[in-house]
Design a protein around this nucleic acid. Structure first.
Lengths: 252, 252
DNA sequence: CGGGTCATTGACGTATGTCAAAGGCCGTGG
DNA sequence: CCACGGCCTTTGACATACGTCAATGACCCG
């Protein structure tokens, strides 16, 4: 299946941006098998409390990591795009602590934990790469905290757009100045801890300032530098490196 | 040094709460060597951008993980107490993405990455345990996002107190109803994304509701169940398990 | 006794939420 | 091909939780 192969390739590329891997190790990733599933918008891929035996690799679509309060209030704490293995954590913590829900129609592969564990065992450098990916995830979450906690709506929104822009660019889904973002304003509100109404007003000011254009579900960034400055955005936390980290850890 | 040994013991216990380790593996942790340092309140332990070659194990004190904006606004995205290895991530990502700053006078050990890598190489189950610890850190961050993003001040504050209470209890520093919290109200504000003034008012309501007492830098929880309910607190994300995860991953 | 840090209080400002209604867009079905 | 319905966006009026500022008070330590 063509799209499955491209998802695995995207995942491998993501790992390669941060970790040094041999050809054999990359092949092992590309040879991963998993069953393909589809989720419709606003449907769960996995629910909190569930015991999972596979991790989800997104082939196409957009997925949110949801935390939820007793009273039903929701907060998206991370978004995942094509090529993301969105619950790599579950390999070491198989009890889901959050909800993964499709924001748009999403195709994904369920890659059995047994396969990922086998890879981690056979190729210590892959174990290291997986661990590193979880550490990058933590860095993104840490940014998400200051975003919701300290930044004003415009700044917050700009920061999110910058993050999605760069991640989309590196995933080969577009460029930082032109990329898809298939989320409703209500979804953006859940990401930004803003009401949908305020997201609307905030996006309007960004458009009025001629920083972005949003037609349909596609973002055009008219002035990247300005947007990044407004969003207090420094890309280093994403760890898209010119030179990936060396094989320091497990492969002596 | 007695206190150094107890810090390593606390760290080992933390790992054992989540991962199954052999006696030999635990011994390897307890045998770790590191230079002891002390940091005064509001001084950096490590700064963003720094390349580090050691991870910090807290012997005594309180440390915050700070994100900072260009304009100087700060946000604490995690707190670390005695027994926490507060930048285990740095083993796989040696370029610090955040600031670690002592909130109170803090003693810590710098454990060289080379030592931790050696352990991960010799004992795959320890590599797994380290990775798992980073995954738990991500779960805590995810909770921190919804805390700052969606919860009202009282709820937010209660949630934080519950988290620190349980972590202190499991670290052997007190009980969930009586534990030290050596942070000023300004520090709590940085954790909660509230102003110090509003933290003050919020703590007052918690006291007026007879849920807690705070004398000096020590918290007494008068009604744990009520506090947890008010804080929308469900401890499962902390992964303090009755039965730790089995050795699934790296030790075939 | 004096200086510094921290907690507390009150008055006031504001960014953002809530509610409710209207308008656009698009697919579906008759 | 048109009409309907559903989802999303947009708008306006109004409410409020929280921030800011500034002063005072408490405590601790030298």
């Amino acid at each position: 299946m063509h799209r499955v192969a491209s998802a695995l390739q995207r995942f491998a590329d993501r790992l390669l941006a941060r970790s040094t891997l041999t050809q054999e190790e990359v092949e092992a990733i590309l040879d991963l098998k998993g069953a393909a599933f589809q989720a419709r918008p606003n449907y769960d891929i996995v629910s909190p409390g569930e015991s999972v035996h596979a991790a989800c690799l997104i082939v196409a679509g957009l997925v949110g990591r949801f935390e939820q309060m007793q009273d039903g209030a929701r907060q998206i704490t991370a978004v995942h795009i094509a090529g993301d293995m969105c619950d790599l954590h579950s390999v070491v913590i198989p009890t889901m602590e959050w909800r993964l829900q499709a924001l748009t129609t999403t195709t994904y592969l369920r890659i059995p934990h047994t396969e990922l564990r086998r890879l981690a065992r056979e190729f210590p450098a892959l174990a290291e790469a997986f661990w590193r990916d979880c550490a990058v995830d933590a860095a993104m979450l840490s940014q998400w905290v200051i975003n919701t906690g300290r930044r004003e709506a415009i700044c917050r929104c700009s920061h999110l757009l910058c993050e999605v822009a760069l991640r989309s660019e590196y995933a080969g889904l577009g460029s930082r100045t032109s990329f898809p973002l298939e989320a409703t304003q209500a979804h953006l509100g859940d990401m930004l801890a803003l009401s949908a109404v305020h997201v609307n007003r905030t996006l309007q000011s960004l458009r009025r300032m001629k920083l972005i254009g949003m037609a349909g579900r596609h973002v055009e960034v008219h002035d990247w530098d300005e947007l990044a400055a407004l969003g207090d955005f420094d890309a280093s936390y994403l760890q898209f490196l010119e030179r990936p980290f060396p094989r320091t850890l497990l492969s002596a």
